[in-house]
């Protein structure tokens, strides 16, 4: 779309394919995190455990079953998303540029409630946040594979600094993702008119 062209209210902001991928990803990520917390509790790395009420699976075997089922959904869905993003130019259009200066300024504006929301265009803070989320998921998957297969994929485990280091990388990738989710859900609910388009694809009509 050429710059300055007015958007009609029935323009599609988020294509159907991307909306499907987004909600599958949301489901898979939540399953992975909640079952992951139950797995963590079986052998806590740090001096705390996750409250059992916030975990999925009931016991270690159940949590592992959820984790190793949802990992396929997460991985294949992410692969589809990355292929789509690269092949259609979606990543280039939506996520670039990422210069630190403007990104920092836009982040400050967003937290001050002054961010400019142009439908169909992300401000610098959003671009940085979404790239951060995607990289966190990729890091969680890579470190997860290193823990799952420290013999068959030992090169990957070595890249993570060994098995015990890979467990910590996996934990902090989860932490980064939870950090993103808290902000993302906060803004999605707090900023007017941004949640509905992620479901219907269309901007909310000004009525």
């Amino acid at each position: 779309m050429s710059a300055g062209a007015a958007r009609k209210s029935d323009d599609i902001l988020h294509p159907l394919l991307l909306r499907i991928v987004h909600w599958i990803n949301a489901f898979a990520v939540i399953v992975m995190i909640l079952s992951g917390w139950r797995i963590y509790n079986a052998s806590p790395l740090f001096g705390f455990e996750f409250p059992v009420g916030f975990t999925l699976g009931g016991w270690l075997a159940g949590a592992l079953a959820w984790h190793f089922a949802a990992m396929w959904l997460l991985g294949l869905n992410l692969l589809a998303y990355i292929l789509y993003g690269i092949l259609t130019g979606h990543f280039r259009r939506r996520f670039l540029p990422l210069w630190p200066g403007p990104v920092l300024q836009d982040l400050k504006d967003a937290f001050a409630g002054r961010a400019v929301h142009a439908p169909g265009r992300y401000h610098g803070g959003q671009r940085a946040a979404y790239v951060f989320a995607i990289l966190s998921i990729i890091l969680a998957i890579v470190s997860g594979l290193a823990i799952w297969k420290p013999v068959q994929l030992q090169e990957l485990t070595a890249l993570m600094g060994g098995f015990e280091a890979a467990r910590r990388v996996h934990f902090f990738a989860m932490g980064a993702l939870v950090f993103f989710i808290v902000l993302h859900v906060g803004f999605a609910v707090g900023v007017k008119g941004v949640l509905k388009p992620m479901i219907t694809g269309r901007p909310e009509r000004a009525e």
């Binding site: 079986a42 052998s43 790395l45 270690l60 592992l64 823990i147 420290p150 098995f163």
Partner: peptide, 10 residues
């Protein structure tokens, strides 16, 4: 060799 437990520790 490294013994890896299903609980996570090794």
């Amino acid at each position: 060799t490294r013994h890896v437990c299903v609980e996570g520790w090794s």
